[in-house]
Design a protein around this nucleic acid. Structure first.
Lengths: 221, 221
DNA sequence: TAATCCCTTACAGGATTCTGTAAGGGATTT
DNA sequence: AAATCCCTTACAGAATCCTGTAAGGGATTA
């Protein structure tokens, strides 16, 4: 089993519960609990320098903001840097996020090794995940169903820029004017119109209202 | 200190962490961990019958649905029944919810004794909360700031009905027609117009799009 | 060079939204 | 009974949204 593991989770209760599971059920010898991404990344870096690298990182994705200054504000950023620095590190995510699209992206982009949803069976699954990952396999919470139809399309920068202004209540004419003023292009009302219409199709929305609602609900914006 | 405590929390990791805190840090002698509201309520009932009632309940608010059938689906329902059955029971809520309006309502309607936000300092706060409540005081997580300006207004049933249809992309005319068909009242286009306009003021939205976006983001709908 | 594709832009008209005025009815107050 | 308040409803005009057609330019391909 893994000997050296770092746990990154900001919720105190959850952190404690996971730590107990990892040390009791899985007999991890050296477990380092962290509450901030920056601190965790530092741990990884120092350990690597000393030639005593961590073997596994278990991390959350979303971290609450507080009075402490931070460079890394999300698990995603932490993972990116950690991967770049130490390609062999095993990474398991333990998070509330249950959007298959998002999770899929993490597997593809950052080569994570496991994904566990927080929930009723969170600890049972985590134990399984650690075991699987230890044997060089991947693990995904069953409820996620990653293979299911993920026919949604990614939003590009232009889409996002438009959606942001729509969310603020600007009309298309106003958005066009704003883009022109800020020398952003494309910026004509027609093109903006066309883009939004395309999004209607892609997200099966009938109008801007339902589009923004759906995207907000899915956490895409 | 309390001797007999029931903990109701569906997330396995969190449940474990809290249990450890309560038994280790607070020396609770008899702690019962439950993952479902129904089971917790049963525990309370049986203990009361035996004349060995629980003194404190620590509970979450939101419980994930799974394959197990359930009558009580939320902490709120559990609290209501528990209060009715055993008015002297102390209740502390430990939840993600950080909407002051909602928390305020819980204090007013159900006379809860403490409210702790899940988060970085969750366990520290929980220990404080239990101590305060033990001495017949109340506790609220500092970040909640219950007294602060809560100028947001609750959405009533009519508001919600309208917003739901708007989110689905129906026009006001369609909503009006639908309400008429379903014999729901009020149902005129004008009244629906007026209601939505009122919501613009209350939520500082410029149009339906920004209104739905804001409400979705705030988790109100 | 011509053909084709894709993106941007313009324009237009029918539908919908947004906002204001106004009228009627029920409940409460004077 | 009269006055007042609040909610519902109708209507209307200006602004905005939504959709379709069409034209122009750059890039790629034949």
């Amino acid at each position: 089993m893994f000997k050296k593991v770092v746990l990154v989770e900001d919720f105190q209760g959850e952190n404690q519960g996971i730590a107990e599971t990892l040390t009791e059920k899985l007999a991890i010898e050296e477990l380092q609990s962290e509450f901030y991404c920056d601190k965790a990344f530092n741990r990884l870096k120092v350990a690597l320098k000393k030639n005593e690298p961590y073997e596994l990182m278990v991390t959350d994705l979303f971290f609450e903001k507080d009075h402490v200054d931070r460079k890394l504000t999300s698990g995603r950023e932490l993972i990116k840097l950690a991967r770049a620095q130490q390609p062999g590190l095993k990474i398991i995510i333990h998070s509330m996020e249950n959007n298959p699209i998002y999770v899929n992206a993490l597997f593809k982009e950052h080569k994570i090794n496991g994904y566990v949803c927080k929930g009723r069976r969170g600890m049972v699954e985590l134990v399984n995940a650690v075991n699987e990952v230890f044997h060089n396999r991947t693990f995904v919470s069953p409820q996620l169903n990653l293979t299911a139809a993920n026919n949604t399309v990614e939003l590009d920068a232009f889409d996002r820029a438009i959606l942001k202004e729509l969310a603020n209540g600007l009309t298309k004419k106003e958005i066009s004017a704003k883009f022109k003023k800020e020398n952003r292009t494309p910026n004509s009302e027609s093109t903006i119109d066309k883009r939004i219409s395309k999004l209607y199709d892609e997200y099966k929305a009938k109008n801007t209202t339902s589009l923004l609602f759906k995207l907000a609900k899915e956490g895409k914006i």
